[in-house]
Computed example of a mutant assay.
Amino acid sequence: MSARVEHTDVGAYALGLLEADDKRAFEAHLTTCRACTAELAELSGMAGVLTGMGPIEPEEDRRGEGEVVDLLRRRKAADRRTRRGTVIIGVAAAVTLVAGGIAVGSGLGGPSSPIAVGGTHHGTGPAEQFYEEGTPAGGVGAEGVTGGVVYESKGWGTHAALKLEGVRGPLECELIAVSTTGERKAMTGWAVPPAGYGVNGQPPLYMHGGSPWNPERIDRFEVVTATGETLLTVDI
């Protein structure tokens, strides 16, 4: 198990989906990886919500959130010898269902971002670490809103980490990539709790996102609300 793969096992470990050998290897990895340890603490609450939906039985009439956990278990059994990043996306999808259609936090193409729930923030997650170690492109925000984006080219497109402050909730937001030809694609979405991010002593939001476009095709990133308001524009 490579270090790259180990980082993507946080969601699977939190839900108890790892094989015995992989579980032992990941637990050994946790002793040396502060980012995964912090992220595991954040995901443990979600695991409690999902596993608290009741036992998974083999009846064909299972419905609701119990099917989400069952799907993750069966998918893990089929894909355990492939890259485990898909499990993280599955966890984000499960949380989206539980939360009523809006993810509290998600990550694409890499380890999931730190998740802020009810204005709390625990430790330094991979999104924050990537942002702080990079060279942010600063953004122009609406009144009181500040932030920026760190991005990198990947084989599949562009991986980006967003920092956002000065936003009050409740809101539903998306990080959008706008191409040089004006096309728009959503990279990730989240809900802003009433306490907000980066206001009244609340921590900022750090969020991962992914685009199938290479950086050369991207003109700018935008943070927009569900009502169409642009909170932040980051030219690249």
Rank of each mutant, 00 (worst) to 15 (best):
G155W: 08
L205H: 04
E128D: 10
Q129R: 12
N200K: 09
R184V: 13
M207V: 08
G119A: 13
L164G: 01
G123F: 01
G155R: 12
G166D: 09
G166E: 07
A127K: 00
E174K: 14
H121N: 09
G147C: 03
G166F: 07
V117G: 01
E143D: 15
G118F: 10
T158L: 02
Y206Q: 05
H208K: 05
V140I: 09
A116S: 14
G169Y: 04
T146R: 04
V140N: 08
G166I: 06
P204R: 09
S153C: 11
T181D: 15
L171M: 09
G189N: 03
V149L: 09
V199S: 13
G141Q: 04
L205C: 10
G119E: 11
P136R: 10
A195T: 14
V140D: 06
E128I: 08
T124Q: 08
L162A: 01
V199H: 11
V117N: 02
G139K: 07
T146M: 04
T180N: 10
T120Q: 11
P194V: 13
L171T: 00
G166C: 10
P193Q: 12
A142R: 05
L171S: 01
L175F: 03
Q202E: 13
E128F: 05
G147Y: 01
H208W: 02
T124R: 11
G139C: 13
A137Q: 06
E165D: 13
H208Q: 10
G139M: 12
P204C: 15
T188R: 05
G155A: 14
G119F: 07
A186M: 11
S113M: 02
E133D: 11
A116W: 01
T188S: 14
K163N: 01
E152V: 10
F130G: 00
E174M: 08
G119P: 10
H121I: 02
V178L: 11
T188Q: 12
P194A: 15
G139E: 07
G196T: 02
V167G: 04
H159Q: 14
Y151E: 03
V178G: 07
E165I: 03
R184K: 15
E132L: 14
H208P: 00
S153R: 14
P194D: 14
H122C: 13
G155P: 03
Y131C: 03
G155E: 08
K154T: 15
V145L: 14
P114D: 15
G119D: 15
G148V: 06
E152C: 08
A195R: 12
V117Q: 02
A116D: 13
I115P: 00
G134H: 05
G201W: 05
T135H: 10
T181M: 09
Y131K: 04
G198V: 04
K185L: 15
L205D: 01
T120C: 06
Y206E: 04
E143R: 14
T188L: 07
P203C: 15
V192K: 04
G148S: 07
K185Y: 06
